[in-house]
Simulated assay, not measured.
Amino acid sequence: MDLDPDTVERDLAQLVLTVVELLRQLMERQALRRVETGELTPEQEERIGITLMLLEDRMGQLRDTFGLRPEDLNIDLGPLGPLLPRGD
């Protein structure tokens, strides 16, 4: 592992934001499944939608703060491929 004192903050932010992005995408998929199966009331659907939009906006702000692009959060797992689905 190559640690550079000049980029340690950005690298740590990249790792944390990658984990948060993975969780955000999983939550979004779960919410869509619950909407499709009719498990949620209209109020719950709206609250989840607003929450996910706010989280996505905040993620964009944090990426901008650390000079990261969305694709920077998609860690390459070698033979397993990328961590996050492409296009999300």
Score class of each variant (00 low, 15 high):
residue 86 R to D: 01
residue 85 P to F: 00
residue 87 G to Q: 06
residue 85 P to Q: 05
residue 40 L to Y: 08
residue 51 T to N: 11
residue 8 V to M: 15
residue 70 P to N: 07
residue 46 E to N: 11
residue 15 L to T: 09
residue 77 L to T: 00
residue 19 V to L: 07
residue 14 Q to F: 02
residue 64 D to S: 14
residue 87 G to N: 04
residue 30 Q to G: 12
residue 16 V to L: 12
residue 36 E to C: 06
residue 42 P to S: 03
residue 35 V to L: 12
residue 25 Q to L: 15
residue 75 I to F: 01
residue 14 Q to Y: 05
residue 13 A to D: 14
residue 58 R to W: 04
residue 5 P to T: 14
residue 59 M to S: 04
residue 43 E to T: 13
residue 49 G to Q: 03
residue 14 Q to E: 11
residue 31 A to R: 14
residue 29 R to K: 10
residue 21 E to H: 05
residue 60 G to A: 05
residue 88 D to W: 03
residue 82 P to Y: 00
residue 14 Q to R: 15
residue 34 R to K: 15
residue 43 E to K: 13
residue 69 R to W: 00
residue 25 Q to G: 15
residue 51 T to P: 10
residue 51 T to M: 11
residue 33 R to A: 09
residue 17 L to Y: 02
residue 88 D to A: 09
residue 35 V to I: 15
residue 1 M to V: 12
residue 18 T to I: 09
residue 36 E to F: 07
residue 12 L to V: 13
residue 56 E to Q: 10
residue 31 A to K: 12
residue 2 D to A: 15
residue 24 R to P: 06
residue 15 L to C: 09
residue 29 R to V: 10
residue 35 V to C: 13
residue 34 R to L: 10
residue 74 N to Y: 01
residue 48 I to G: 06
residue 16 V to A: 14
residue 20 V to K: 08
residue 80 L to K: 00
residue 64 D to G: 13
residue 51 T to W: 05
residue 16 V to C: 10
residue 14 Q to V: 12
residue 37 T to F: 04
residue 36 E to T: 05
residue 53 M to W: 12
residue 4 D to K: 05
residue 36 E to V: 04
residue 72 D to Q: 01
residue 61 Q to K: 10
residue 39 E to D: 04
residue 13 A to H: 07
residue 70 P to G: 02
residue 43 E to S: 13
residue 50 I to T: 12
residue 11 D to K: 08
residue 70 P to I: 01
residue 74 N to E: 06
residue 49 G to W: 02
residue 19 V to T: 06
residue 6 D to Y: 15
residue 15 L to S: 11
residue 87 G to S: 03
residue 17 L to C: 07
residue 24 R to C: 00
residue 11 D to H: 11
residue 43 E to Q: 14
residue 47 R to F: 10
residue 26 L to A: 14
residue 29 R to Q: 12
residue 73 L to E: 00
